[in-house]
Design a protein around this nucleic acid. Structure first.
Lengths: 123, 123
DNA sequence: TGCGAAACTGGCCGGGTGGGCAGGACCGAG
DNA sequence: CTCGGTCCTGCCCACCCGGCCAGTTTCGCA
């Protein structure tokens, strides 16, 4: 399923910082066997670089909160999380409450969405 | 805040296909002004390529289901979604049910997580 | 040694959620 | 025209969720 060994590898760019994008484009433009994708063209791989300024700071979550958050992202119910972590459902709800507070979310669905957006968890 | 003009740009690789990863590493290893990141090293940009086989096909969701899904990802409750789309709560629950079925999810949180993973929605 | 933060547990309760059942309207394909 | 799919609505019900109250232990830090 891979492309021919002789074919060029097409790369697309998704870079917030214009300066960095220019430098990379200049560097990669001269590499044999490699080509930058035309606008809209499907690429074999993408070079991404998110502006760090868009990520203010890592939210201060405790280890236990991260545990709960990870299981929430898997769609686990409070009961399932409790069994998984060997704690009571009440404790899970306690941590979920803290999570909703710290992530400024209205519910568990909103919480995992916010966490994913901020890079706290990886889907 | 950009690095010195003379500094190398550090790139990390996140590529599912080992063959493609090797080819890219070989090509980029010889480019001046550019360097591949050591394991765990923070990179200025990342080259990503997800294996297409892990994304079987776009799930067939109706327009209405996409509407509901988008609002779910915002953390909206069924009642809020109903108001937003000018339909009844019952209808929202109907669409949510279809979503859970099609996305193979156990709940609304799992549904948005799956949808985000498959690229159906953007967080 | 006292004090706060983190982690954990309990009970209670209003409202949200998910599933099942049953129905109607619309529209394009066969 | 009938059939299937989408979209819409209603009711009922068991369960889950989030927020409130209160309490315990453990740990590190001042």
């Amino acid at each position: 399923m891979s492309a021919d060994r002789t074919a060029e590898i097409v790369l697309s760019l998704e870079i917030d910082d214009p300066a960095l994008a220019d430098r990379l484009a200049a560097l990669l433009g001269h590499v044999a066997g490699l080509r930058l994708a035309a606008p809209g063209e499907q690429a074999a791989a993408t070079i991404v670089a998110r502006d760090p300024r868009s990520m203010p700071a890592d939210i201060a979550l405790t280890q236990r909160e991260l545990d709960v958050l990870a299981l929430m992202a898997e769609g686990a119910s409070n009961k399932m999380i409790a069994r998984q972590l060997n704690i009571s459902v009440h404790t899970v709800k306690f941590h979920v409450g803290s999570l909703l507070d710290k992530l400024d979310a209205t519910g568990r669905t909103d919480a995992v969405a916010h966490a994913a957006r901020r890079g706290v968890i990886e889907l």
